[in-house]
């Protein structure tokens, strides 16, 4: 058993894609609600106290998205009240609520995803698609701090020539453009050094091996397969219209069916697994420690 953080990045990515794409494409209330709650709980477990900020801004997004629809769309049979002679309907409000839950859960999931994907993992995933583009990306990432440091150095140097001043906004913009320009030359010229260092070590001479410290274990394979199967169940239910919902004029949902229920169960498992894994690993760790 491993936390999502420690899983092979490919499995983790597949997992996240499944868990986020399903509520995007199957806007069925139970699915979106499960996704929203599952993501919120996972973010809380993952970030602890720091999660408050994420909750606040996702909450704000949720409220806005909920309210926008009834203000714009006036379809629906049940009129709640009128604003300036235009009706606000229950169906439109529920529609808004449903999409808001789906959309903000996506934001939640991706926040969690971005948190566990460091640059090494990102490169590992990306090199599956294109090793060369991954190399470009890795180089770019490495140069960002270098360029920033050079920017600071250049500013000091130019200042002592009397060519940079931040006395007023025009001077500052002019000065910053100047420094930026100096840094661009520096970056391009030094990029050639990096390129030569890469070429000297055989870059571009053969098909690259992607060497990583990540290992693809049986558990990773199992997790990936499980995610695929569970997603398959949801997709089947969607294809056979077992998870349909129409909001206008009245709310009509698909009738209960075995496949529909199975899909909902499958998604509940998917959304709960990240939290269960995190909690499970923690509990087992404490247990092992207490025995030692």
């Amino acid at each position: 058993m491993k936390k999502l953080d420690d899983m092979h990045p490919l499995s983790a990515t597949l997992f996240f894609l499944c868990v986020t794409l399903i509520p995007m494409f199957i806007p069925y209330p139970i699915i979106t609600a499960v996704s929203f709650i599952g993501a919120a709980v996972y973010v809380t477990v993952q970030e602890g106290r720091a999660s408050v900020r994420t909750h606040l801004w996702v909450g704000l997004l949720f409220v806005i998205l909920t309210l926008v629809n009834p203000l714009i769309s006036h379809k629906g049979a049940t009129i709640l009240f009128m604003i300036n002679d235009t009706p606000v309907t229950l169906e439109a409000l529920l529609y808004g609520l449903n999409s808001a839950a789906g959309l903000s859960s996506v934001v939640y999931w991706f926040a969690a995803f971005a948190r566990i994907m460091d640059s090494e993992k990102l490169l590992c995933v990306f090199s599956v698609i294109s090793a060369r583009a991954a190399l470009v990306m890795s180089c770019a990432l490495r140069y960002i701090p270098l360029i920033r440091a050079q920017f600071r150095k250049t500013k000091t140097a130019q200042r002592s020539l009397g060519l940079y001043s931040d006395g007023n906004i025009v001077d500052k913009i002019r000065g910053d453009m100047r420094v930026f320009s100096v840094v661009i030359t520096w970056a391009l010229e030094n990029g050639i050094v990096t390129a030569d260092s890469m070429a000297a070590r055989g870059c571009g001479s053969a098909k690259r091996t992607a060497f990583t410290t990540e290992r693809f274990t049986a558990f990773d394979a199992f997790a990936a397969a499980a995610a695929a199967v569970l997603t398959g169940v949801c997709a089947a239910a969607a294809l056979y219209d077992r998870l349909d919902i129409a909001f206008y004029p009245d709310i009509v949902m698909s009738e209960g069916s075995l496949l529909g229920a199975a899909a909902q169960a499958a998604y509940i498992i998917l959304a709960a697994v990240p939290t269960i894994l995190s909690a499970g690993v923690d509990i087992r760790w404490r247990y092992l420690r207490s025995r030692a």
Binding site: S130, A131, Y143, I144, I147, F151, A187, G191, I192, A199
Partner: peptide, 25 residues
């Protein structure tokens, strides 16, 4: 995937990377 198959010189690749880094900043 197309980019992966193309023969792009190392220098060109790195200069592209540097421009990417500048864009990011």
């Amino acid at each position: 995937t197309g980019y992966d198959k193309r023969q792009v010189g190392t220098r060109r690749m790195v200069i592209t990377a540097i421009m990417t880094a500048l864009c990011l900043i």
